[in-house]
């Protein structure tokens, strides 16, 4: 009978349900979610118009939940490659804490809940945009692009760029030039940010069979692409000024921060040894996070303090 009891316990354990609440929070990729929430908050404040503070809170909550749901669905689909990469091996599915089917159900339920809540309580156009974002991240990026092309993050980066646009849409009910400017800031920032990471984590991606630019086109080409995208950040950072979303404070900050971004990208490009490359890439990767955070923070400060924005050309 002891054997029978042990067998029952094993089979019930194998059917799942053993993850802690912390494992389910980890499935939502809280660190990514924090950036999603922050950029969405800026989108909410930057948008022309007014939204009731409570509905603004619900909007941010729904965007955070939708972003988290995308993360859970991404972890469900990518559990096999997560298991072989050092950075991701301890995630809840490869570590065995959560069954793949549980993560799938959790992700789908949260996706549906976040979209329905946003649509029913705040704005139908914003909810449709949130649904499209989840679809784009899970189906287009995770299932379609990630394992097929080295340009995966160039196109897939759009998914991470939608949150401020969704928040903007919740306020205005539409997508205009200002929302597109915020979208483009994140969209153009994503490739140099991730390729810097990919250069000093090249072995991880290669082991998992994920075609990142360094292991497909080579390190020299990746460094060139980082430099090109970093140059493109110059006109992109000016877009919030051209659309009348940001003012002098943002302009001053953007010039200084983007100049430093470019200098770091040039250092990566010129690095002659592998050691110097890794060091320069780590510096660029770290600074790129600060660059994005600071630019959005400057817009937020301008809106909160009532500093005037430029007239806008677009």
């Amino acid at each position: 009978m002891t054997t029978g009891t042990a067998h029952t316990a094993r089979s019930l354990t194998a059917s799942g349900g053993q993850g802690t609440a912390g494992d389910y929070i980890a499935l939502l990729k809280p660190r990514v979610m924090s950036l999603v929430v922050f950029t969405a908050v800026v989108g909410l404040f930057a948008a022309p118009g007014h939204i009731h503070p409570w509905l603004g809170f619900v909007t941010i909550l729904c965007i955070a939940l939708g972003g988290g749901a995308s993360g859970a669905l991404n972890m469900w689909y990518d559990a096999d490659i997560d298991a072989v990469m050092k950075r991701t091996a301890k995630r809840p599915i490869p570590s065995g804490a959560v069954e793949p089917g549980e993560a799938l159900g959790y992700g789908l339920a949260l996706s549906a809940a976040s979209v329905l809540m946003l649509g029913l309580l705040v704005s139908v156009p914003a909810a449709l945009l949130l649904a499209f974002t989840i679809f784009f991240y899970v189906v287009v990026y995770t299932m379609g692009l990630k394992r097929r092309t080295a340009q995966n993050i160039v196109i897939g980066g759009a998914a991470g760029a939608f949150p401020p646009m969704i928040a903007w849409c919740a306020v205005t009910g539409t997508i205009d030039a200002g929302a597109i400017a915020l979208f483009l800031l994140i969209f153009m920032w994503t490739p140099p940010h991730f390729w810097a990471l990919a250069l000093f984590r090249e072995g991880d991606y290669e082991k998992a069979g994920v075609p990142m630019l360094p292991n497909v086109a080579g390190r020299a080409e990746t460094k060139k692409q980082i430099l090109i995208y970093s140059l493109l950040l110059l006109p992109t950072a000016a877009l919030p000024l051209a659309t009348g979303t940001a003012g002098y404070l943002y302009a001053a900050g953007a010039v200084i921060l983007t100049a430093k971004f470019l200098r770091d990208a040039v250092t990566v490009y010129r690095a002659a040894t592998r050691e110097a490359e890794d060091k320069a890439c780590k510096t660029l990767f770290g600074f790129s996070i600060l660059w994005l955070f600071a630019l959005f923070a400057l817009i937020l400060v301008e809106k909160l303090t009532g500093l005037p924005a430029f007239g806008g050309l677009l």
Binding site: M1, T2, T8, L12, T13, Q18, T20, A21, Y24
Partner: peptide
């Protein structure tokens, strides 16, 4: 013997999840 499908640790985890 009565079947004990989950260990006390498993039950504690389930209880915490239910509360959340």
């Amino acid at each position: 013997e009565p079947v004990q499908p989950f260990s006390p640790e498993d039950m504690a985890r389930r209880r915490k999840r239910s509360i959340v």
